[in-house]
Design a protein around this nucleic acid. Sequence first.
DNA 1: GCCGTTTTCGGCCCGACTGTTTTCAGTCG
Length: 573
Amino acid sequence: MNNREVAKVFSDTADLLEIKGEAIYRVLAYRKAAESLSSLGEDINETARTGRLRDIPGVGEAIASKIDELLTTGKISFYEKLAAEIPPTLVEILKVGDVGPKKAARFWRELGITTLAELEAAARAGRLRGLSGMGEKSEARILESIQALGRRESDRISIGVAWPAAQGFLERLKDLPGVAAAEAGGRLRRMRETVGDLDLIVASDAPRPVMQAFLEFPEVERVRGQGETKASVVLHDGLRVQLWVHPEAHFGTALQYATGSQAHNVRLRELALDKGLSLSEHGFKRKTGKEIRCAEEEEVYRTLGLPWIPPEMREDRGEVRAALEGRLPVPVALSDLKGELHAHSDWSDGSTSIEGMARAAAGLGLQYLVISDHSRSLGVANGLSIERLREQRKVISAAQKAVRDVRLLQGAEVEILADGRLDYPDEVLAELDLVVASLHTSLRQPREKVTARLLNAIRNPHVDIVGHPTGRMIGGREAADLDMEAILAAAIDHDIALEINANPERLDLNDAHARRLIELGGLLAINTDAHHPDHIGFRLYGVGVARRAWAPAEAVVNTWPVDRLMGWLGGRG
DNA sequence: GCCGTTTTCGGCCCGACTGTTTTCAGTCG
């Protein structure tokens, strides 16, 4: 079983226990363990084999032994017993908005509902409103939420869609009279791969007109809820947006609160309690009733005796403890990136000439750009034959004369063939400044085979970077089944970098694997895989993943000045 | 069920909003 499958069992266990009415802290313990498992950068089978399950945050004696049982027998007797008691299909109806464990339990016990389809039928038949505490409005909301669930292919949208949408709102909010500041919060600010909605936080001492103006934005289809400080709307395209408006004097605590994650916030509130303070989005409160307001987020952390923690690191993955102990790393920032190491031109499947890409890179202030078009076997992408590759080198030199502000290098994104060989012979690879080796085909091979292909590429002395190592597409194609520990170890052994592909549909490596690589002392490259000048803007998302991985600039090869980069490349093949 | 520079037991975050209520439970983040 893989990490995600194991995590799902524990998250389902938490849901079932909650429906059953178990003590909430027992439920939360299972949920916390599930979250830790899903963000674990190492294969859980390896962690179990080496007896380190208890090192996982939130995994104690009881859950560790259940993980062991699951990995060795394929099931957990505790879960089997629970599932015999509470129908496990009830978990799916918790996805419905306004339906939590209490309602799910009542639908089941009082109406015999066990599945989403049965819940929908009961709502349509008007049978929900008969329950005490439920009326027509509740029933209508539930029905509406079920339909919304069915319409959306997934309940999450890509950060590549959400980010620009949020920026558009923020610009307009900042222009409103009486608005001192506007920021995105939530998963978006933490640079998660996907978000469920947009959380926007505005500082204003006159909240009412700001709220009103927001509700009248043309893309707003309907208002889901509205109070003094919060409003929630649905846009015509189905995107949900939440707006918080707080006075300037609270903006720091409000932004901190709205950024989350929930688990991170719980940690901070626990720390606050240790200091005799109660923390909420409005500020700190002493037992005496005296309040401490924070206009800036830094003040919130300072009050707790902490340095400011970057939003991308706020996932309760040890950042609070690291901050307390003064060993929180400074993660790489967008401004640290000095070059792009993986970009395509119209020589293969890019949209734009080499010179056009060079001008775009120069316009962004990059110091170097590697043109890395596809290799010969990738016919669908117009991969370059050896002859065309050599011809391209001359064109790159000519482009360099035309665009002097950015150093142009010739690379290639070389196919790792199904049998593990590379798509160009070594003597051709040796002619290139930089080699990105990538998998595009036969991603579904068994673990041993696909892992061996990547290892073979890593051992080739000409390969500098492995591109989008797992091949996953978010919400689309599954990652290849790789022995990631072996890949990370080999990459470190051979002093090559693993790519964080910044395309928001890829983000590959993901944050968990990238963090594991950093822990082990490896190197990353943040590459956009640009096929169009605009795609170089994807760097932002790749940096987000690297920051979530706690990667310092030092560990990212394209933050290095060109001389150091060339030295690293030249040290190999 | 987890966890510990106040603890191996006794804690484990806090408030807004909604709908159905006559004061609160449930959900959400």
